[in-house]
Design a protein around this nucleic acid. Structure first.
Length: 399
RNA sequence: GGAGGGGUGGCCGAGCGGUCAAUGGCAGCAGACUGUAAAUCUGCCGACGAAAGUCUACGUAAGUUCAAAUCUUACCCCCUCCA
């Protein structure tokens, strides 16, 4: 198991056992489809496509790894279909490292709406999650309305068919609302599901994939510790931190630390669903190796371009909104020092115009920038760690 | 020349006696977005005002009425059809 995978971490920030010190580290994550240098950012290509960007453009932006989603591809076009086309790598034309999420997050998002709504206590009232019990979760398909059941075994089968390098155990993404008792029961059930995921994974293992376990426990330190130890005790290749991370940034940072304090540091550690620039600095300093998040690619489609501190219009935001009228006459690129394909040729004024004119190119071009931005950020973080530089200092430039 | 239809806020377009500062849509101005049901969603959008509110508004003018974007009359303009 995991013969074709390897993780070598070089700690430059301090002793892992000494949690009073920062724990940032660099690593090399080897997969059958190439190497990922960590800390790294994983871009979300939920439905077998990073929206609006081709694999070649991802490569040009020096992307190392992308992700797709089990639930979506299961609903349509089906994992057998993709298997027949030679697997997800071949199907979508991405030959680099790849991860598939288990569909566990959809138990949360289809049941309760967006994370923001959940945290703010707003719920849509319309739920596509029909039932959740010991066996698994029953959904109404977002695609055609049909009833679908996802179980740990089913998720493993689908992810096997898809063939991503990294696959993820099936879990319940526990919402923030709900008391400790529910969080604990949900965590225990997720553990049972993850154990079943691991069992199914081992049955189907042909060495081409590596499995992530997920730490749960909500915002409760004792539960996070318990969950981390549970994952440590099982033969997962790597560990992800999942479930709710709280309702505020500071709570999120506390929860990450609750988990990383107890996670086996010999394995890669992934933080699920987080991608704010400042969040990444905190995560890295707490020992996170990889991140994934829809944020960079989603805000791009909404006119938001990620920029370093020097190029911002608002001290509270990590991006500029190119739809704003102030960019109508701004002939500069998004960032003066950016080497992305977009910043080489397009001005803010042009991108502003494209957004106003509803031209598809705007979404594409901003996306290219944001992807390159994240890759540059992660590379600078890696370089800083390797050179024993100061992340705190680097952060003042990027945040 | 004859017959008919119409002129509503930046644009398109509802309303056809009071609950209308006037439904919608577009445009405009902002905001949100963190394991993607998201090229999405939310708010504002006559003027002044923080708000309560006040004022000015449905081609123009006069009238009927307690009350008119809505009814009457005249005028101006646009469109369609017939000669």
């Amino acid at each position: 198991m995991y013969d074709k995978f390897n993780f070598n971490a070089i700690s430059c920030g301090g002793n892992f056992a000494d949690f009073s010190r920062t724990k940032e580290r660099c690593g090399i994550l080897e997969t059958p489809h190439g190497v990922v240098e960590t800390p790294a950012f994983i871009f979300c290509g939920t439905k077998a496509s990073v929206k609006g960007v081709s694999p070649q453009q991802l490569m040009e932006a020096q992307t190392q790894i992308i992700l797709s989603n089990t639930y979506h591809l299961f609903s349509y076009p089906g994992s057998e279909y993709i298997k027949k086309r030679g697997g997800l790598h071949k199907f979508m034309g991405w030959n680099g490292p790849m991860l598939t999420d288990s569909g566990g997050f959809q138990i949360f998002s289809l049941g309760l709406g967006s994370v923001a709504d959940e945290i703010k206590g707003k719920r849509s009232g319309v739920s596509s999650l029909l039932k959740i019990d010991e066996d698994g979760a029953t959904f109404r398909s977002y695609w055609d309305g049909s009833t679908q059941i996802l179980t740990p075994e089913k998720s493993m089968e689908i992810q096997k068919n898809l063939g991503a390098d990294f696959i993820v155990a099936f879990d319940e993404c526990t919402p923030f609302h709900g008391d400790k008792k529910y969080t604990e029961l949900s965590m225990e059930r997720s553990h049972r599901w993850e154990k079943r995921s691991l069992g199914e994974f081992i049955c189907r293992d042909d060495g081409s994939q590596a499995l992530y376990g997920i730490v749960h426990g909500g915002v409760h330190a004792d539960l996070r510790k318990h969950s981390a130890e549970f994952i440590n005790d099982h033969a997962f290749f790597a560990t992800a931190i999942g479930g709710t991370l709280g309702s505020t940034k500071s709570q999120m940072y506390e929860v990450i630390e609750m988990a990383t304090t107890h996670i086996n540091a010999a394995r890669p550690i992934h933080l699920l669903g987080i991608g704010g620039i400042s969040d990444i600095f905190v995560g890295v300093s707490l020992g996170i190796d990889t991140f994934d998040c829809v944020h960079p690619t989603r805000i791009a489609r909404h006119g938001g371009a990620l920029v370093k501190r020097a190029f911002r219009d608002s001290p509270t935001r990590e991006h500029i909104n190119l739809k704003r009228s102030e960019y109508e006459h701004d002939d500069n690129p998004i960032e003066l020092d950016c080497d992305c394909a977009t910043c080489q040729v397009f001005s803010r004024a042009y991108l502003h115009y494209l957004l106003k004119a509803s031209e598809l190119l705007a979404l594409h071009a901003i996306n290219i920038h944001n992807i390159r931005f994240m890759n540059r950020l992660m590379k600078e973080i890696r370089n800083t760690i390797k050179n024993s530089g100061s992340l705190k200092e680097l952060r003042t430039i990027w945040c």
